[in-house]
């Protein structure tokens, strides 16, 4: 058993002739907050899509907890413990906040499709348990007062919190956050940073793509920098901030 929860091994992705990810090898440490930064179009979101099964790699491998996951479907990858949020919030706007989280707990419930068709009374207990779990989740994110509100009518900051809550409802080992602070104001960004810290304390490894450098440098244990789909540098935030290559390619730009 290694100390890495996720290993990318010579990962490649081409879209036609365009190389989005080129020969990327990168490890994500277990129990830590890792960040992935790079200029726009560097391939960050593509890497997240490859890891979560929304896109298939053109070459190379992805291992999660020493298990090869490339080629698996998104719902199967979610099933083994990788959860994610999107850059533009993906929630179920016309379902209530509580229902959004309950759907996130679907995989952790025993109520399979056949099962729930055959045993409706048992299902109701199941439903109650899921509801209680979801309420705990809401409490953790301090969103209780919105439980019955349609998710689409929440302010953006709370929608992001909700998306994270739904992702956490899956009880993932690894949580990928795609620009969690984009569109948030300063106060909301600070709250987001605190939340990510709390998630780490829950023993969930976090991998973050973010443009807000203050946030990244503040909360990350490790930072990796990519450009044109390839790795430029990796290390602790302090090392990255001193790295001349990074400064010229990105920070100093």
């Amino acid at each position: 058993m290694t100390n890495n929860i996720l290993e990318l091994d010579h990962l490649r992705k081409n879209f036609g002739g365009v190389v989005a990810v080129s020969d990327l090898s990168l490890n994500i440490a277990k129990g830590a907050i890792s960040s992935l930064i790079g200029p726009n179009g560097a391939g960050k979101t593509t890497i997240f899509n490859l890891v979560t099964g929304f896109a298939q790699p053109s070459g190379g491998h992805i291992n999660f907890s020493d298990r090869r996951i490339n080629g698996m479907k998104p719902h199967a990858i979610a099933g083994i413990g990788i959860s994610r949020t999107f850059q533009n919030v993906q929630i179920f706007p016309n379902m209530s906040v509580l229902e959004n989280i309950m759907v996130g707990r679907y995989l952790r419930s025993r109520a399979g499709m056949l099962y729930s068709c055959i045993f409706p009374p048992i299902l109701r207990n199941e439903e109650k348990r899921i509801r209680e779990d979801a309420e705990k989740q809401l409490h953790f994110l301090e969103l209780e007062q919105y439980a019955d509100t349609p998710a689409g009518s929440l302010p953006l900051g709370n929608q992001r919190m909700l998306e994270i809550a739904r992702a956490l409802a899956l009880e993932p080992g690894l949580l990928l956050l795609d620009e969690p602070a984009s569109g948030l104001n300063a106060r909301e960004t600070i709250a987001m940073g605190e939340l990510i810290g709390k998630i780490k304390e829950m023993n969930v490894s976090v991998w973050l793509v973010e443009h807000d450098m203050d946030l990244v440098m503040d909360i990350s244990d490790y930072v990796a920098v990519i450009n044109f789909g390839g790795l430029i540098a990796q290390g602790t935030p302090a090392e990255i901030q001193r790295n001349p290559e990074v400064i010229s390619a990105y920070l100093g730009g």
Binding site: P74, Q90, F92, P93, N94, Y106
Partner: peptide
């Protein structure tokens, strides 16, 4: 409502 988000939820 949102197929991608649903797939992410497993």
């Amino acid at each position: 409502i949102n197929r991608d988000a649903a797939r992410l939820a497993g």
